[in-house]
């Protein structure tokens, strides 16, 4: 029987989708001559609130907060968004381990709209109370903590936590009922592996490093990808041509920013069918991803305008919109 639990939420999302930026809106934003004009443009579109004024970072942060406020208002089971929230959750773990091990304090490095906020995460790490962490985080937290404490190798600490993040995302996707979550998790892990391969090829990392850093997924062979990375970027592109990520191979040949854009555009293409679903969680997840993509694109444009980049250079980095 079709699940109609999300009927209210999906209809509300449909009404909200009208306010999402289209490609034409992004073109209008690009047409603004100055950084200040861009800020005024997004403020006129309702971005930020009375407290943020025309402060770009405050406006973008407020927009990110609005996404989750809407989801919470709709009283949906927030665990369905685990696939999306794990990266922030594991980021908090990484930041806390680094702060504790290096005995430094860096304000503003934590995401607070997570299951475990910055302060709580710091307390857990300081007390080595790893048992309080979710099951999929405990082993990685302990290993990363011990590694950083004994070797002072920050990159190795990152590798351990990043891989655990991808494994958690993949497992959450595998257990999800909806295809959108499965596909998103698959793409996220595969794209992360491709990025590791590209960076490893550029920095001449060993195959052992790559195997340790990459997470297993169904659509790519970690073994073949890491072997291709040893041979260089051209070999990675050649390997990708035979996979579902052939478009990424073309983008890789073009430029690193084109590849980054392709990665985000692929996510947007994956969620496009959710525009036509009426009773599943899919449209809600698609809305969250579309809003995050929109905020990222606006951030890129604002940053480009602020630093005086030519329009062509900014446009190369502009992502496709969901609507």
């Amino acid at each position: 029987m079709t699940d109609t639990n999300y009927t209210y939420a999906v209809a509300r999302i449909r009404a909200l989708e009208v306010t999402l930026f289209s490609n034409a809106t992004i073109d209008q934003l690009m047409a603004c001559r100055t950084y200040e004009e861009c800020l005024q443009f997004i403020a006129d579109k309702g971005w930020g609130d009375s407290d943020t004024g025309l402060n770009a970072e405050a406006m973008l942060t407020r927009e990110e907060e609005k996404i989750w406020e809407v989801m919470r208002e709709m009283r949906v089971d927030m665990s369905v968004f685990d696939v999306l929230s794990y990266p922030n959750q594991f980021h908090n773990l990484k930041a806390a381990i680094k702060e504790v091990c290096t005995e430094t304090v860096n304000p503003g490095i934590f995401y607070d709209d997570c299951e475990i906020g910055g302060e709580e995460m710091l307390e857990i790490i300081r007390n080595k109370d790893f048992i309080r962490l979710p099951d999929n985080m405990q082993a990685a937290a302990k290993e990363a903590y011990d590694t950083l404490l004994h070797t002072r190798d920050g990159q190795l600490c990152d590798v351990i936590i990043d891989r655990a993040t991808m494994e958690a995302v993949y497992e959450a996707g595998r257990q999800a009922k909806d295809d959108i979550m499965k596909n998103y998790a698959e793409d996220t892990v595969a794209i992360a592996d491709i990025k590791i391969a590209v960076r490893s090829a550029k920095t001449a990392k060993s195959i052992e490093f790559m195997r340790r850093a990459m997470a297993q997924c169904a659509s790519l062979s970690v073994d073949q990808l890491s072997k291709a990375a040893l041979a260089g970027e051209a070999a990675i592109a050649e390997y990708l041509l035979g996979t579902a990520y052939a478009g990424g191979a073309e983008a890789l040949k073009e430029s690193p920013s084109a590849f980054e854009r392709w990665c985000d555009n692929r996510v947007i293409q994956t969620i496009q069918p959710q525009k036509y679903k009426a009773f599943t969680i899919g449209p809600l997840v698609a809305y969250v991803l579309a809003r995050q993509n929109e905020i990222k694109t606006v951030r890129i444009i604002l940053s480009g305008k602020q630093n005086g980049f030519p329009d062509d250079a900014i446009r190369e980095r502009v992502r496709e919109m969901y609507v």
Binding site: T4, T7, Y8, A9, A11, R12, R14, A15, V18, A278
Partner: peptide, 17 residues
């Protein structure tokens, strides 16, 4: 009931409809 849930969702964001 089903249609009412959807209607409520839309009116939450856009009462003009």
């Amino acid at each position: 009931g089903i249609a009412g849930q959807a209607a409520a969702g839309v009116v939450t964001e856009d009462p003009s409809k």
